[in-house]
Nucleic acid binder design. Structure first.
Length: 147
DNA sequence: GCCAACGTTGGC
DNA sequence: GCCAACGTTGGC
């Protein structure tokens, strides 16, 4: 899961009450579907820092609550407000995540791109813009080995 | 700040 | 349903 560290970083998550927070503001249907339909409580997730001096994977969190409506879509005062999302038929969903640990270093995108066995990973593919994307077991373990 | 690569919107 | 225009993402 990607986040711009200026807006919300892994340190922010660690400092949150109970190390937990909701992953609000996702306004992309593919990413929404993953949160609504696929992510299960306890699933481990990489926390990726995007749009920053050193883009890369900063650490690990886990799903603390499965998909439920993103209430920021209903709130006119937030920048995530979407008048087309009806509380009776919510358009946007989010999950809660819980801090697990921070890596000893950020694993840079450049290294992920260079790794010969990570070529299939969504993150390193050209033009990828999804903010949430799947990682399989093999990729997960390779990345853990790069810390 | 640039710009490629997307996703979304809306006229037709 | 097509597709041009537009807005956004995010690496560099």
């Amino acid at each position: 899961m990607k986040s711009e560290p200026d807006a919300f970083s892994i340190d922010d998550l660690q400092r949150a009450i109970g190390g937990k927070d909701h992953w609000d503001g996702v306004r992309n249907y593919q990413a929404r579907n993953m949160m609504r339909d696929q992510m299960k409580k306890g699933d481990l997730v990489f926390f990726y820092h995007s749009n920053c001096p050193e883009p890369g994977i900063a650490g690990i969190m886990k799903v603390a609550r499965e998909g439920y409506p993103d209430h920021t879509a209903f709130d006119r005062r937030t920048k995530y407000h979407d008048p087309k999302s009806d509380p009776k038929n919510p358009r946007w969903y989010m999950v809660d995540v819980k801090f697990v640990r921070k890596f000893s270093r950020v694993i840079p995108l450049s290294e992920l791109k260079e790794h010969p066995k990570l070529g299939d990973m969504h993150l390193v593919k050209r033009g990828n813009r999804l903010s949430i994307m799947p990682v399989n077991n093999k990729q997960w373990n390779i990345i853990l080995g790069m810390e």
